[in-house]
Design a protein around this nucleic acid. Structure first.
Length: 123
DNA sequence: CTCTTGACCACTC
DNA sequence: AGAGTGGCCAAGA
């Protein structure tokens, strides 16, 4: 019932759709903008890509791509893919290692403080 | 076109 | 804190 949605503003749409057509490409474009040492959530990426509420789509897009900074995209609340970490402990470990290499602090439980490391896109 | 699936999200217990 | 439930959107069979 909750709709944490907010349709992207005109400028946000323009900025992305002007250069990319497909949703995946839009998502990838957003992911690529995440600076080193910062992280973003799937929901955030999806919204910026013009898909409010499409966090799952963002996940699918990241998964089906290569050479992207996928490690900088996390689940909400800084959850480092906790849900699937059990199914994919290797991937989770790799992600953690990559982030720590960029200066992002990750707790033993795979949590990241979004207040400190969350990416705040400037327009 | 219907049904299932998914690197998700949020609420409730 | 952990599990269950329902909802979101798009892709693929």
């Amino acid at each position: 019932m909750r709709r944490p949605t907010r349709r992207p503003t005109r400028s946000e749409q323009d900025e992305l759709t002007a250069h990319v057509k497909s949703l995946y490409k839009a998502i990838w474009a957003v992911a690529r903008r995440i600076p080193r040492g910062k992280v973003a959530t799937y929901g955030q990426v999806a919204e910026l890509a013009g898909i409010p509420g499409g966090a799952r789509v963002a996940g699918a897009a990241m998964r089906s791509s290569k050479g992207l900074p996928w490690q900088r995209v996390l689940g909400k609340r800084g959850k480092n893919r906790a849900g699937v970490a059990i199914l994919d402990p290797v991937g989770a470990a790799v992600q953690r290692r990559l982030l720590e290499g960029e200066g992002v602090e990750v707790t033993d439980r795979g949590l990241i403080d979004l207040v400190r490391f969350g990416w705040v896109p400037l327009r």
